[in-house]
Amino acid sequence: MDKYLDRLGIYAARLVSQKEYFVPGHRACQGCAEALAVRLMSKASRTNTVIACATGCIEIFSSPFPLTSWMVPGIHVAFENTAAVASGIESGLKAIMRKGRIPLKKINVVGIAGDGGTSDIGLQALSGALERGHNMVYVCFDNEAYMNTGIQRSSSTPFGASTTTSPAGKVVPGQTTWKKNMPEIAAAHDIPYVATACPSYPFDLMEKVRKAAEIEGPAYIHILSVCPTGWRLPPELSIHAGRLAVETGVFPLYEVERGRYKLSIDLPELRPVQEYFRIQGRFRHLTEEMVNKIQRRVREEYEKLKKKVMMTREG
């Protein structure tokens, strides 16, 4: 698959600053792709960044008092309101800059939350902040369940996945609803920038964060963050699982820039979803019939996405 990364250039790694803004020593699980994604995001947003962090894995593992892994200032204010808090930070900074109390300069305001904090309990606050048009970046680290409280299903948990509150039982085969399409919900707010990313594609992720921070107005990035603990997956397969999510079309990488859709990696052929499912314990109960049902849906969704790319193409 390396050929699909061509456009990023093999020298890209050398262009990334060595400086870290999210440093080691935190308490994330082994193989946590979310921790990696946060690190990459921080490398891209760099200094002059203020973080508003929702309750969740990141908040717990990165900053148990009196320690912190953050080299940029940050605030945690409960669970469902990260976007509202970030919008207040952005407004407050503008207000005190205008009065000359701090120097006038660009400060990135970044709200971060998990899939529960975004697509469930934080959706209203996020919608409000996106609609109001604050100059901020909102990043959802999607590990597809409430991992911090012990793997409970969210509206972002994929169909068929077994979690502690959508267990694969004798009658009910795990999660019975389809994953909520958060990037599309964000895009429906007609904001200037929406993207999906995955730390298995680090340069793509950083490029998207950089772009989101530079664009004037609200930007939304949805990052698939493989969770070995919750997905029942050996930690050394985290990066591999992220790649399979993309290559099977389960989690396509794309951008919506001022309404125009663009695939970050255009896959001529999707790998079978079974390859992605096989390595994860949360899907091991799936029958062939269920796998086929999911396969059909993944293809349909991918085709829909490609049509949006076609329809919004320039010229």
Binding site: A78, G88, S91, G92, L93, A95, A125, R132
Partner: peptide, 24 residues
């Protein structure tokens, strides 16, 4: 002033917590 017409009272307080935290 910056005047936020938020979508709920919960966000009203959450947003001014953010604003107060930067020193406004």
């Amino acid at each position: 002033a910056k005047f936020l017409r938020v979508e709920s009272e919960h966000s009203a307080m959450a947003s001014i917590i953010g604003a107060s935290m930067v020193g406004a």
